[in-house]
């Protein structure tokens, strides 16, 4: 297992946002993470990436225990993520956003940078070329010098994915990558995500509300409800699981129950 989460729990006040969740992802997999609003999907991402510390539970990446590490340490070990609300560096250029993502792989010392030594220029040229490559791949090369805040909504979503991939992660957590995109763009994004996975040898975990995305791309789907894992398996099976249907659509009432409900109200 590449990522292994055991018994994660997190309470906010009296609310159990995540309770006793196990979550394991194989290397090279595309995993879907679904569930109704407030079911704890984003909280799980925040726990994995170290933004929140779990009340209980352990996490390991590639066999190494990374429980309790800070977000930047977890990032350096190979977990990258995007945010539902994007969180780009709006006043920095598109290229600079990727360069920030590549931070951990830039090889010169702080004193060398302060004195502006030639090895700094050489390394800067090398990483800028590399990031321009990535920008062309996600189709944003023409906007390299533009402030990220001036991109369109769809381009911003692409850029957050680009920034995460610039980290050269082992595993990439995508939080609703297709939210707000038109159906055509959703298809394009799906193709891009799959090709990025192939090109960079990624393992992916995708939170998505657009079920088409999950059903078409994921090999395995995990379903959360009220902070608990209620189902896990291939998409076709998940779709017909009664607990999943209930979580999304509610429970079918018997005639007697309907009568009782009408009387009460």
């Amino acid at each position: 297992m590449l990522l292994e989460v055991k018994g994660f729990s997190k309470q906010f006040g009296g609310l159990a946002a995540i309770s006793n969740v196990d979550f394991s992802v194989k290397k090279g997999e595309i995993r879907g993470l679904i569930g109704p609003n407030g079911s704890g999907k984003s909280t799980l991402f925040n726990l994995i990436s170290g933004v929140y510390t779990p009340d209980k539970g352990r996490i390991s990446l590639d066999g190494e225990d990374i429980s309790g590490l800070e977000p930047h340490e977890i990032a350096r070990r190979g977990i990258a993520r995007t945010f539902q609300l994007l969180r780009l560096f709006g006043q920095m250029t598109v290229l600079e956003n990727l360069l920030v993502g590549h931070h951990a792989h830039i090889r010169y010392s702080a004193p060398a940078a302060i004195f502006g030594l030639p090895n700094v220029w050489a390394e800067e040229t090398r990483v800028k070329d590399e990031m321009m490559d990535l920008l062309s791949f996600i189709g944003l090369a023409d906007y390299a010098g533009m402030p990220a805040g001036e991109l369109s909504g769809g381009q911003r979503r692409l850029l957050t994915i680009g920034r995460a991939i610039a980290m050269r992660p082992k595993i990439l957590l995508l939080d609703e990558p297709a939210a707000g995109l038109s159906p055509v763009n959703v298809d394009n994004l799906l193709r891009l995500i799959v090709s990025l996975k192939e090109r960079y040898g990624l393992t992916l975990v995708v939170i998505e509300h657009i079920l088409k995305v999950v059903m078409d791309t994921c090999e395995t789907v995990t379903v959360l409800e009220h902070g608990e894992k209620i189902a896990e398996g291939p998409p076709a099976k998940i779709k017909d699981d009664p607990r999943v249907v209930e979580a999304y659509l509610g429970k079918e009432m018997s005639d007697a129950e309907v009568q009782a409900f009408l009387k009460a109200s």
Binding site: S49, G50, V51, E70, P71, H72, I74, A75, R76, A80, R81, F83, R87, L88, F89, G90, Q91, M92, V100, G101, H103, A104, R163, M167
Partner: peptide, 10 residues
Amino acid sequence: EDPLAASVSG
């Protein structure tokens, strides 16, 4: 710009 995004970027 965004301390949280900076920290998860390493």
